[in-house]
């Protein structure tokens, strides 16, 4: 199947289980034009033999959509957090170092446990209440002007790259992470979601909430969907500040 006998050299940080030690294993897989990281990993799965010619277990990874909308295949490629599906082999220097994200706990090889992100989305109520005990009818419409930028925020796929790059998301800190703060902005902009706006603001005004952001700006730099996370966080700073005064003086 090789086009010209060229090989792709991979150095992969592996781990057999959640509590095992990690180790690096090297592989060489046949090159094809326009390969991405996933197709290189598929070659290992097809023929799980490492660079030394020894048979090994195939490298485990997670991926679903293969078109950068699901967020499942986040890994470190040459030390940078990327989506494995949209990272092309031709754009990389070899050997290509692959490793699981460090912010999350490793399940096996390149698979990490992303539960803390989904927990954070639950905490900030990143949904819209639509049903009561009876039909509430259609909600108000969103102005086209707002829809345009809100749509950009809705592209978040909870991939975790912003969590990985943020210096304040780690085991010493309780910070819920950049993406959930942007989701509060999204759902508080939605005309129906707005009806629970104060609840969402309250949920990020506690320890580990919006005040844990240190403005390093890494989140927006690494976001594969180019979501303006830093501006979303600043907008939430504005909303929470205004709300705190309202809560103290008026409400």
């Amino acid at each position: 199947m090789t086009t010209n006998g060229k090989l792709v050299h991979l150095k992969i940080r592996r781990q057999d289980g959640p509590s095992s030690d990690s180790y690096v294993e090297e592989f060489e897989v046949p090159y094809r034009p326009s390969m991405n990281i996933i197709s290189a990993l598929m070659e290992i799965r097809k023929n799980p033999v490492n660079k030394d010619g020894k048979e090994t277990s195939p490298v485990q990874w997670e991926s679903v959509c293969l078109e950068e909308v699901c967020g499942a295949c986040s890994i470190l490629v040459n030390g940078k957090p990327r989506q494995a599906c949209s990272t092309l082999i031709d754009s990389l220097e070899q050997p290509i170092h692959l490793a699981p994200l460090k912010t999350f706990s490793c399940e096996r090889d390149l698979i990490v446990n992303r539960k803390q992100m989904f927990d954070a989305l639950m905490k900030v109520k990143a949904w819209i209440d639509i049903d009561g005990t009876h039909d509430l009818g259609p909600g108000p419409r969103l102005a086209e002007e707002d829809r345009q930028w809100a749509y950009e925020l809705s592209k978040c796929m909870t991939c975790g790259l912003c969590f990985e790059a943020c210096p304040n998301v780690n085991d010493r800190s309780t910070f819920i992470g950049p993406a959930p703060l942007s989701q509060v902005r999204l759902f508080n902009t939605h005309p129906t979601g707005k009806m629970q706006a104060s609840k969402r603001l309250e949920s990020i005004m506690i320890e580990g909430g919006i005040t844990s952001c240190g403005n390093s700006g890494n989140c927006a730099e690494v976001c594969p969907k180019e979501i303006p996370l830093t501006h979303s966080i600043a907008a939430m700073n504005k909303s929470t500040t205004a709300y705190s005064f309202k809560r103290f003086f008026v409400k």
Binding site: P167, N168, S216, G217, N218
Partner: peptide, 24 residues
């Protein structure tokens, strides 16, 4: 106390604002 919450990662993420963050 706030600074202790950060795991500085300037070596992996050499972005302008990350430098400001670290140096702050």
């Amino acid at each position: 106390y706030i600074a202790r919450e950060a795991k500085n990662n300037i070596s992996a993420y050499k972005y302008e604002k990350n430098w400001y963050f670290y140096f702050q």
